[in-house]
Write a protein that binds this DNA or RNA. Structure first.
Length: 466
RNA sequence: GGCGCGAUAGCCAAGUGGUAAGGCAAGGGUCUGCAAAACCCUUAUUCGUCGGUUCGAUCCCGACUCGCGCCUCCA
């Protein structure tokens, strides 16, 4: 069975494949760089990463565009308050975002594009929409007239037929003819950063950047567009309206949305004191891999309950996987193949792939890995795991890590050197041989203090950093 | 009010019209000089509540309860 994804547009799980050649043209809504991104944001960004990785594992090539929104009301407000230029201000949080992504081992999209580098293209698009009669101007701003777009609501499945157009509603400090209408271009207020274009003196609205950049780089019809579920309405609905008004073609074939994240069972909010950035979490000594594992292990369409217990659980699960990998790499095995283990490895790999193909069911995929892990460990204990079983076991682990990527520890800065560790271990081994357990335990404690864990195995001593 | 999602063991979380994956935690073992690692056993006769369809439902339908998201710029 090929890859199937839930499409918000059709409200069904459908087989996914790109329309042209073998390349998936996908667009994902990136961050607005007005502050550090929080753990809820990263739930979605980890989901994008899993999606990317599994599309490639499915044999597709990628042309993935992600935007960075580096101009909006909040950014302007904060930049002005700190007496910084827009560029100075957004550079700080753009870098922070990219650092965070790297810490979580998120693959870089093929293109990372900034709104402020596409102002002219946006103005051109707005001009085109004006020519098509989709817009009106009010107090120096340009608005999209929803009433002109008949399919409005097809993504969020909202029925707007009952809404009365024409009631003058003042929201967001701008005047609109219809409550559903949204700003394509916002007139600058005094002291605000602004661009002079044929759309006026001001800045682009939020929605237009995604339409313009997506179409510019990927063409009129995307294979896939993804984002957090809260973007379905109005952002993605508005993107569809603008884009399809511009090109006359369907904007995206698949719309894929990730569910929300809760913290300790509650909505994350600053007032509840459960609002976390990645920095907050790392500052508690939690490894990035644990965060990545937790965020990846719950299927993207289910609300994820982010807890510190969950992080601890993720950490232990990763340890077990790493120990297994370590064991495979260091064990001395008899020649030959254990057919039962070989079959299990193949079945686990197939099961893993089938689970991922099923709308990225990461929870089920993990179950196949752990079931095999237990079976293989048992065989290793019994000396029944043979040299010829390494390939199958490693194939499964490689597939797992191609998606989850948590096996390699994040290098800790500083600490005891490998040479010192090896020397101490040699001394301890000698002490043990002499049955001087007091000295050997002393060394073990010393290493533990330095963050190094010692394990005595049949095949000798092995160590790892904690 | 409209649209949508969810409710499975202490926690996290899969899943199927025929009788409940996996992870973590807990208790008991095996192994070990002691540890660590690993493995074994135990922990949901039960899947929010109440009805219905069915030979049979946790899974299908209806109602209800609770929780969550969106309904103008929030992933």
């Amino acid at each position: 069975m090929p890859l199937r994804l839930y499409n918000t547009l059709t409200q069904e799980v459908q087989p996914f494949a790109p329309l042209n050649d073998n390349t998936v043209r996908m667009y994902t809504c990136g961050p607005t760089v007005y502050d550090f991104a929080h753990i809820g944001n990263f739930r979605t960004f980890v989901f994008f990463d899993l999606l990317r990785r599994w599309l490639r594992a499915s044999g597709f090539k990628l042309d993935h565009v992600m935007n960075i929104t580096d101009v909006d009301d909040k950014i302007i407000r904060n930049a002005v308050a700190q007496n910084k230029t827009l560029d100075e201000y957004t550079a700080i949080y753009t870098k922070a975002f990219l650092d965070d992504c790297a810490a979580l081992r998120l693959e870089k999209p093929e293109r990372l594009v900034r709104a402020t580098e596409h102002i002219k293209e946006m103005a051109d698009a707005i001009h085109k929409l004006e020519e098509g009669g989709y817009t009106y101007r009010s107090d120096g701003s340009v608005y999209f007239r929803i009433a002109k777009f008949k399919d409005y609501g097809k993504l969020s499945h909202n029925d707007f037929s009952g809404m009365v157009a024409g009631a003058r509603v003042d929201v967001d400090n701008y005047d609109k003819a219809d409550a559903r209408d949204f700003a394509l271009w916002k007139a600058a207020k005094p002291g605000e950063p602004a661009w002079d274009t044929e759309a006026g003196h001001g800045r682009p609205g939020w929605h237009i950047e995604c339409s313009v950049m997506a179409i510019q780089y990927l063409g009129a019809t995307l294979d896939l567009h993804a984002g957090g579920i809260d973007l379905v309405f109005p952002h993605h609905e508005n993107e569809i309206a603008q884009s399809e008004a511009l090109t006359g073609k369907p904007f995206a074939r698949f719309w894929v949305h990730s569910e929300f994240l809760l913290v300790e069972g509650q909505k994350m909010s600053k007032s509840l004191g459960n609002f976390y950035t990645l920095r907050d979490i790392f500052a508690r000594g939690i490894a990035p891999e644990a965060v990545r594992y937790l965020l990846a292990s719950v299927p993207y369409r289910k609300a994820l309950n982010f807890t510190f217990d969950g992080l601890a659980s993720a950490k232990t699960a990763i340890e077990r996987l790493r120990n297994f990998k370590f064991r495979l790499d260091s064990a001395k095995l008899a020649e030959g193949v254990n057919d039962k283990i070989a079959e299990h490895a193949a079945a686990a790999l197939a099961g893993f792939r089938a689970a991922m193909d099923d709308d990225l069911n990461t929870a089920e995929a993990l179950a196949f890995v752990f079931e095999f892990l237990r079976d293989a460990n048992t065989a290793l204990d019994a000396g029944e795991f043979m040299e010829g079983n390494l390939a199958g076991a490693n194939a499964l682990l490689d597939q797992f890590d191609a998606v989850f990527e948590v096996l390699k520890p994040t290098a800790a800065a500083g600490g005891i050197s490998e040479t010192d560790i090896e020397n101490l271990i040699a001394e301890r081994t000698a002490a043990k041989k002499a049955r001087n357990f007091a000295r050997s335990d002393e060394i073990r404690a010393q290493l533990l203090d330095a963050g190094v864990v010692i394990e005595d195995t049949k095949d000798g001593v092995r160590w790892k950093r904690k």
